[in-house]
Design a protein around this nucleic acid. Structure first.
Lengths: 132, 132
DNA sequence: GCTTGACCTTCCAGTCACTGGAAAGTGTAG
DNA sequence: CTACACTTTCCAGTGACTGGAAGGTCAAGC
């Protein structure tokens, strides 16, 4: 199957699929006309990449996960450790983002938002007073 | 004052300050020896940038905020609108991240994490079953 | 005066994960 | 035969820095 077809089945843009091949994440066969040729197995791996990336794993982590995906002898403990580390990372990002939101929300809440120049948001960003 | 000093006072690395100058975010004077020379006013603007970036505003948004910061006639409503839009964006990111965390948490929870190859995380990433 | 080391300058390249676009070849429907 | 969609490769750009090289400047200590 051509790349466009594989793209539709995997949910990854053709450009991204070629990029993944470039960086050695997944190699495709070639048809006689030079077009890339994908098997259903390839499509499964592409979908795997699409989901892994979508869940926040980096490309390097995806490379690792994909090799575990191919490894019929893998230990699920290894996979679980990677996923747990990612979970910690997501939780950290989440906490940071919540902090940002609360700070910004507080600033917005205190701003009249009218035609006058006085603005607690600006004051907060300027850092004259405590922002958090 | 030299860039190192301005860096310490603003919390921005010298490299970043030079980069901001490169992209026209903030211009510094020059001393006789060719070194950049910063006033306390410059430091205030650098701190303003440091805080704005830290709160998740893009460099282009910071450019806009900085010009409002300088505008003594600004309307606080304009600032508030920008901050509110950013708040919506942060909330959207937050919701997405929470979705990711829940999905991943669910997968991790279902995985034994032992020496056997069976792994619900892998199955979830492969997408044979519903991930969310 | 000389050396050492910290600081400063510019410029170029790399990061991450794509994405856009140009130029050219291929396949298919009418 | 033509139109048009699809494919190929290659090069460059994104955002917001960051690292490093090569060289200039400055202050302290000997």
């Amino acid at each position: 199957m051509n790349i466009g077809n594989a793209s539709q089945r995997s949910g990854l843009p053709p450009k991204t699929i070629r990029y993944y091949e470039d960086i050695g994440l997944l190699k495709a066969g070639r048809a006689d006309n030079g077009y890339r040729d994908y098997s259903m197995d390839d499509v499964h791996r592409l979908r795997f990449l699409q989901r892994s990336r979508g869940l926040g794993f980096s490309v390097e982590e995806c490379r690792q996960l994909l090799s575990l995906y191919d490894d019929k002898e893998r230990e699920s403990a290894v996979v679980k450790a990677i996923a747990e580390a990612k979970l910690v990372e997501i939780d950290r990002k989440l906490a940071e983002l919540i902090g940002l939101r609360d700070t910004l929300r507080h600033l917005v809440h205190n701003c009249h938002g009218d035609s006058r120049p006085e603005c607690p948001i600006m004051d907060g960003l300027a850092g004259d007073d405590a922002v958090q």
